[in-house]
Design a protein around this nucleic acid. Structure first.
Lengths: 332, 332
DNA sequence: ACGGCCAATGTCAACGATGACATGTGTCAA
DNA sequence: TTGACACATGTCATCGTTGACATTGGCCGT
């Protein structure tokens, strides 16, 4: 900046004025400054600017469990598309679903003085330590799952309602024994909510809840094995509800291996090739991009000084996409 | 920091010394400082530190075309896992495959004075404007596709070799007419390389190149239509090579719709449900995480003052995963 | 006893930018 | 003519931190 000023024969302050359209500058001076900027290839130092101006970095910190997972990737994309128009940059880190990494990432973001924080909580985390920051006015929004140990803004999918709809869909096609395949640990927020939705649907239809029809697995292979166990029951389910995408894939694989084209299946979360499967997979689709943008907009409105102090909860509805696998009649 | 210093009764400099393990500090002073830090919840301001110390932000800027795409998401994950142990933070942006967004993202990153820059170039971009930065010593590495208009480090998949292997696999199973379904625009680097690999394999087998067997589409639907056209030819191909994941999905869909279980298929890029398809999909798998970490390590070695000025190219090998669809014999 | 050295801490300026306020000029109405 | 005022620019301090160098006091060897 000093170089540019020297080149033109003015002070750094005048250069600053030109670049920020701040205060009056003679037309001729402005042009000469711009030319010098081009000539010297000068780029203002955002770090210095952020520090001087706001004491806040013009960036949003986002913690997700995993980058490679298209669900969270799409969430991140939604966040980015919402914050960029505001001149905010996205800083991301993945926690690999561990509380330690999550915490250390958040610490880094706080140390950078991000303008806002968005977190997809991992399994065992506790967010009490963030209370002070929240009270101090830092916008913090939790995504996909609520915070643990503190009341804070969060944006989540309509897990319970979506699961209810999915299971109700199976029931509507005549199924009376519907298996549930979910995550491990069972204490996971989304798993708990979806399980509630499953029970809601059974109750609404007056069907009994049978504990033996509930199985879990923490990845595709485990889910596949879980489904195999269900199929081997003396009185097996005629339909399955898979409570997440790994469970869905596991179920699809297990059914394919067992050659059971007659078992109905509804999965939570859409899959890229769902429509190409045999039969095409019926799903309860979430809207990860909407999740991201909604959360980002909540952060932005907090930045703009949203009056209410109270924690907000926002629900992103799911959508049932019937493709075939959920419409199979119960095998007699 | 001043508050902490006042609390303890020392200068900010002493606090700085404690926090950075820099210079001698009395044991007792150190303890009192640490206690005051805890008590006041002080966190050092990384922005100020970065600015003072290096004039470089302890961050790496990464530009990818799309976050929701698991391929690039996994690349980003690979980058992150390689840079975090070094205390570097990841800043990402998605270009949506447009040169303008890419350029503006890069400008933002440069303005933030990132320590390194990693870019997956989009279609029409030209990177000549980055020459000065490169010469000035900023580590810049291009990913998945090389830079345009300048010689720079890049890490790419073995596209040509992988495509050659995939097509050779089909040829080895007796196919003499192999269709090619690729991206639009055909000028895209990866498409060009993979097309070359396709021709390499044909040539190696002494098979003629037939222009009518080459089709393109820029998304799944278009690829699907392209495959339908190929199948409708008077002398149709008995096998298909899909040059990217959209093309693969399009091909799978088109073959399923046409009820053609007899056409062999090899796709470039693995798909999550590939093994569940009917028949299970044979693919040439890339290793996106390795792509990311290799690129990150190149950046890090440049940061450590890698002597050679010359641009490096690194090739990440692909792996053929035979699952069934590529092993079908030619329909008579 | 004294110079030298090291440990422990302090002082000051600087990183690159901008906010607050000051200065110098020309224009125009009274 | 003179002040008031807007315009154009400059001066200085400051954001939070650390590098370079200075200061203090105690211990040690000779």
């Amino acid at each position: 900046m000093a170089d540019v000023a020297r080149e033109v024969g003015v002070t750094a302050k005048t250069v600053s004025r030109v670049l920020n359209d701040d205060g009056p500058v003679a037309v001729e001076t402005r042009e000469r400054v711009m030319e010098a900027v081009r000539k010297l290839g000068y780029q203002p130092n955002l770090m210095a600017r952020n520090m001087r101006v706001g004491a806040r970095d013009a960036a949003i910190g986002l913690v997700i469990p995993e980058m490679g997972n298209p669900f969270f990737g799409t969430v991140a994309g939604g966040v980015e598309s919402a914050v960029r128009p505001r001149g905010l940059t996205l800083i991301v880190g993945s926690s690999s679903e561990t509380a330690e990494l999550e915490r250390s990432l958040i610490a880094t973001f706080l140390a950078r003085r991000v303008s806002g924080l968005m977190v997809v909580p991992s399994f065992a985390s506790d967010h009490r330590y963030l209370r002070a920051e929240r009270v101090a006015g830092l916008p913090i929004v939790f995504l996909d799952r609520p915070a643990v140990g503190m009341a804070a803004d969060h944006v989540v999918s309509g897990n319970r309602e979506g699961a209810r709809d999915g299971v109700a869909h199976l029931v509507a096609h005549g199924h009376r024994r519907v298996g549930f395949v979910g995550d491990l640990p069972a204490a996971l927020y989304t798993r708990r909510e979806r399980f509630q939705g499953y029970r809601d649907a059974l109750a609404a239809a007056g069907l009994p809840f049978d504990r033996t029809l509930v199985e879990s697995g923490h990845d595709q292979e485990a889910a596949s094995a879980a489904v195999a166990r269900l199929l081997a029951l003396p009185d097996p389910p005629t339909a399955l509800f898979a409570a997440n995408n790994f469970a869905s894939m596991g179920a699809v694989v297990a059914l394919a291996r067992a050659g059971r084209r007659d078992v109905a299946l509804v999965g939570f979360d859409d899959l890229p090739l769902a429509e190409v499967l045999e039969p095409p997979l019926t799903v309860v689709a979430q809207d990860p991009a909407a999740l991201g943008t909604a959360a980002a907009e909540l952060v932005l409105s907090r930045l703009d000084g949203l009056p209410s102090r109270a924690a907000r909860r926002e629900l992103i509805p799911t959508r049932l996409i019937a493709r075939g696998s959920g419409e199979l009649p119960p095998a007699r």
